[in-house]
């Protein structure tokens, strides 16, 4: 046994044990690890987003546009056209619009102007709904339907059987998600068949995912035993 002399490994190992102590019951050690984890990760996320999103995507282009100097390299930027011309490869002063919308999100902290914060929220939801609609229609709807079109008889018994089972499973699973009719009669039989297909796939997925989670647990134990305690 060769216990680690690395402070970082000791901190990680103790925090791991603190989290594992939750398996017994909620206790002050778990609470300490939980609050530390939440606080550090939230702070890290805010700082990371400020420097990787707000600065390069908003502040830097606006500074470049209105001062004519690149804030990163401090080199002079050739200004072609006006601040809204967009001819030097970025959107230049147009970034004022998302900037203002971003600031409006914080207005909710001031009691009386709270309603103004709903405007950027409406823009955000509207933009993402629009983007996702075409994305889903292309990637999930048409592409998956197209991939499902296959010959039901290929000359080979097992390939044909596989294609027929796949198509029956697909159609009946779709019928399970039919809401404007009661699941009775033929529709009921089809929907029940569909849920059987879904449950079989869930069972397979469950087993597969549990195995991957166990491998994560094994990795954590390996860290404790090998890296921390030095038992090899």
């Amino acid at each position: 046994m060769n216990v680690s002399h690395d402070l970082g490994i000791w901190v990680a190992a103790l925090l791991t044990l603190f989290v594992f102590s939750f398996l017994y019951k909620d206790n002050p050690l778990y609470k300490f690890a939980e609050h530390l984890f939440v606080g550090v990760s939230a702070g890290y996320y805010i700082v990371l987003n400020f420097w990787t999103v707000v600065m390069p995507n908003l502040i830097d282009p606006l500074v470049r546009t209105f001062t004519g100097v690149d804030p990163v390299t401090h080199a002079k930027v050739v200004q072609v056209g006006g601040p809204f011309a967009g001819s030097i490869g970025d959107y230049r002063a147009w970034f004022l619009i998302p900037g203002i919308l971003g600031v409006l999100l914080f207005v909710r902290l001031i009691g009386r102007g709270e309603w103004l914060s709903r405007w950027p929220l409406a823009v955000i939801i509207g933009v993402y709904a629009g983007l996702k609609t075409t994305g889903f229609a292309h990637g999930d709807l048409v592409a998956q339907v197209q991939a499902s079109l296959q010959p039901l008889w290929t000359g080979d018994l097992w390939t044909s059987f596989n294609a027929i089972v796949f198509t029956v499973g697909l159609v009946t699973s779709l019928l399970f998600f039919f809401y404007s009719r009661e699941h009775k009669g033929a529709l009921g039989v089809a929907a029940r068949t569909g849920i059987v297909f879904l449950m079989v796939s869930f069972g397979a997925g469950y087993g597969y995912t549990v195995m991957s989670r166990l491998s994560l647990l094994i990795g954590r134990f390996q860290f404790l035993i090998e890296d921390w305690l030095g038992i090899k």
Binding site: F37, V38, A42
Partner: peptide
């Protein structure tokens, strides 16, 4: 927190 397991904790 946006961190997945901090949120779960």
């Amino acid at each position: 927190s946006p961190e997945q397991f901090a949120y779960a904790a």
